[in-house]
Structure formats: C-alpha cells, structure tokens
Amino acid sequence: MVAHDTGPGAAAVTAESVRRTYHLAEPVHAIDGVSLSLGKGSFTAVMGPSGSGKSTLMNLVGCLDTPDEGRIEVGGHSVGELSDAERARLRGTEIGFVFQTFNLMPRLTAVENVRLPMVFHDGVEADRQERARSLLERVGLGDRLEHEPSELSGGQRQRVALARALANEPTLVLADEPTGNLDTETEAEIMELLVELNEAGATILLVTHERAVAEYADHVVNLLDGEIESLEHLSDARDVTAREQAAGGAGNRRSTGEGEA
C-alpha cells in the first residue's frame, strides 16, 4: 500500500489504508486498502470503470459513509470516530457536493438553494442572503437569483450547485460526474468554472469516467477493483494548455498526459 500524495503543503483530506466492505452474498471490498492525501488547493480526478470503487471512495471522503478499516481525515477530523450528527456537521462545513444530477431542492429558488448549507450550519447567521447572492454572481448567475431549478438550464443548475458547494467555504469540493448530464459545450463551461474556483483556492476532488474531463485536474487517481492502480501528475501540462488557449485554442485544455497509466 503506497500513500499517494497529490498535493503540496498541508493535506485537506487524507486516507490511510481505507477499506470498505459490502456484505453481499460474499464480502466485496469496494475500497480495498486505499491511501491517499489531497493537498490543500489541489485538483484531483478519480477515474476508473464502473465497479472500481469511485462512488464508494466519494461517499467515504464526503463523510456520507465510514470506513470499515483504516482512517479518513477531513479538515483534521477523523470521520470514522464521529457521531452521526458530527459527520452531518462536517459535511456541511468541510465538504461541498456537486452531483451529476445537480440535486437542487426543486421548490427553492437559486438563492435559497445556495443558502441551504448555511441554514443547516447555524454558525453563519448574519449575511446568508448576501453571501448566497455573491456566490451566484461568482458563477455567473447574478441575474437568475430568484429562479427555481425548473426554470434553469442544465448548465445553470450545475452552476447553482457549484455555488451551493462553496457556501460554507468547504475544505473540499466533491464533484461526482458533474458534467455527466451536460452537452459538450456546457461541460467545458462547468469545467472551466471548476478550474477557476480551484485557482482561487478551492480543493477539488472530481470523480469521472471520462478521460477528457479528468484532464482538467492536476492529478488523476486511477482506481481498479477498489485499489489505486496508478497516479498521474498532470500539473506541468496545464500551463501548456493554458497558453494554447490564450493563443486561441479551444476545447480541452490538454492533449498530453494520456498514456501515463
């Protein structure tokens, strides 16, 4: 078991020899001895075929699930040792979720959806409305504040979800196939936004099965059968792509980086 370190500086999330077993007809190790460290401000993609343990890893890192063995730390808290309520609190303050299916509250407006994590986190009382508004402006939805999700396009909904993920200034933004339900053009917009947020300081863990999407990240963790098969560092290539784009390049920022696996 090798500890994979994806980031410089202090770690936002660390996993040590994590195992999660589902007791079906016979025990299945959905995650089997994974050690991982996500540095603060890093942008990591988790890739792998279905059944490789991506979702389980995401649930574990997102404090929705607890490991059977090993230890996961998010923002300095050991997830497995927390009570149900404490983990809920940790999800609210340290994690921001972005889902493939957006998962916005259908009857709440964009602003109210963004406010929601703040509502459940009693600490931030004063300027919820103001903060929700500015977050929506930041993702380019300043003119859609009072719209309900049904009145927004897929891309706009995902922007609301992104704004919501940032509501409590989380240690980590967890994006699970965030562009899976979007067309290519909107996908690029959302991924650019993620890169932007990352460059502004957010730590991002992206789960995807699309290579093209994964390449927006600095690091790619390849999962197979619940174990880390390989780790790629793409950071260097990023500058190149950025320059290409500045020169008029379009589409994915990267064409290199493949074949390292």
């Binding site: 997102g62 929705l64 609190r89 998962n103 259908p106």
Partner: peptide, 16 residues
C-alpha cells in the same frame, strides 16, 4: 427521499 438526501449531503442532521 431525494430531497432528504440532498439536505443531509449539505449538512442537515437527523434532528434538522
């Protein structure tokens, strides 16, 4: 159920 899941994901406790 799904909304409950969303709320729990963004930090709602059982009590909430």
């Amino acid at each position: 159920t799904r909304e409950i899941g969303i709320m729990k994901a963004v930090g709602a406790t059982k009590r909430d």
